[in-house]
Amino acid sequence: MPPVAARYHFALALRSDGSVWGWGSNPQGQLGSLPGSVTNMTKVMQTGVTQIAAGANTSYFTHDNGQVLSVGHNPEGQLGAGIEVDRSSTPVAVVGLTRATRVSASSANQHNAFAFSSTQPLPPTFRLGFSPDSGVLLRNKTIKSQVVTSAVNGSTQSITLTATGLPSGVTASFNPPVVQAGGTSVMTLTRNTVIEPFDTLEITVTGTAGSTSRQSFYLLTLADPNPASGHAVPGPKNDAPFTRLLVRGNS
């Protein structure tokens, strides 16, 4: 399915880390925030989403655990959550779905949505995340972040961790380099040389278990502590890559 969905002046984008980002008109809270006229780029869902759909002022998300979540307008019960509210700016679970694989919003009727469900148990999988998910790396220094995995659908998979998108002079290592779903690893980033420009960039960490792979993104700020260089030490820019709208399909 396409990683972008749009309807009635708002749009959603699905990234390969399972997060969903949205922008545009938000009169009914369909972007996961308090209703407002126009919303800049904002994170709607944190992780675990495999497919998205945009209805009329309502957003829908299929999760890797078989749930469907919805957010936004609800005068006709289109959130599917069994709640009697006109809208919800917090995502809620559609009741009665446990093995959903896809959701679609009707183009013919603005108050309808449809979900497709599997008759078989969903395959085991996993999620990746960071704690913290950003940091500042100075010359000849190291920083660490915990890579957190979570098991989905009863996964017991062994996950091999790798990092890509590293600038020249920066290396990454994982301890341990292979974890079981539900376990943690420590990523260490080391910088040995002067690298310019001093900027925030995105490192991709991929977890691979057999034919299944999942990704998570770490925001790395390169800085120089030497005032003589003319560069101050900046703090991490929150979600800076999204000023360039880096959208990727889900793997």
Rank of each mutant, 00 (worst) to 15 (best):
G80R: 05
S106D: 15
S16K: 10
P35N: 05
G249W: 05
Q215G: 00
V68E: 00
D86R: 09
A93C: 07
A228L: 13
T164S: 15
D199L: 08
E202V: 01
R127V: 03
I83T: 13
L245W: 11
P27A: 06
T212C: 04
L12W: 05
G235Y: 07
T206N: 10
G29Q: 04
K43V: 07
N140R: 13
R7E: 08
V170H: 01
T50E: 04
T90K: 10
G135T: 12
M41A: 09
G66V: 02
T212Y: 03
E196L: 15
A113C: 12
Q67V: 05
G80H: 04
S106L: 11
D17A: 06
T47C: 08
P123S: 06
T62A: 11
S211K: 13
S37Y: 10
L220V: 02
H73V: 09
F130G: 03
V71W: 00
R99N: 13
G165T: 02
P176R: 13
A113H: 14
H231F: 12
L161F: 02
Q78L: 03
K141G: 08
T206R: 15
V178L: 04
P227W: 12
S213V: 07
S213P: 00
I143V: 03
I159C: 05
P241D: 12
T39E: 15
L34C: 09
K144Q: 15
S155G: 00
R139D: 07
E84T: 13
A172Q: 07
G48Y: 01
F198E: 12
S185Y: 01
S16G: 08
V4L: 13
A232W: 09
V92H: 06
N140Y: 11
G154T: 09
N26P: 11
V38Y: 11
A228P: 02
I83F: 08
V94H: 01
T101N: 12
V38P: 00
P227R: 14
N74M: 11
L79W: 00
R102K: 11
L245P: 00
A209C: 09
R87D: 10
L34P: 09
V85P: 03
T101W: 02
L31G: 01
L220I: 02
F217R: 03
T156I: 05
G24W: 02
Q30V: 12
Q78R: 07
K43S: 10
A11P: 01
